[in-house]
Amino acid sequence: MKAIGGLLIILALAVGIVPALTSCESRGKAIALPNGKSIPMKCHWTGRAELVAAVPLLAVGAIMMPTRRRETLQALSVLGILIGAMVILLPTTLIGVCANPDMLCNMVMKPVLTFTGMLIILVGAAGFFLARRAESQ
């Protein structure tokens, strides 16, 4: 299960880092208000929310590595799957990204997070079944 834990840690880092590099704010873009002030775009808040998903995923991966108990591993895997689903839902449904399809967040951040979320779900599912097999041996 060390490999599964390690993979989850790598994916958690990707979830935390990718929005910081690919949100519109990373290119200095913001919404200009008529009073001259500027406010962050939608993708900025998705990036923040992804951090909230990345931290527990990092913890899941770190705890998974030394753990040997089947029940704990399975519970952690399920938690990983749920976080993976959140990683996908945040940029697609819950908050979203900027509407323009040519903006960096729409072109890179959203697909990368969706793909990473899918990988997290796959790795979580693999962890769940591997934990079950380990017990039967």
Partner: peptide, 11 residues
Amino acid sequence: VDAACCAVSDM
């Protein structure tokens, strides 16, 4: 581009 008076930027 990126103006509050336009819902879509650079369309």
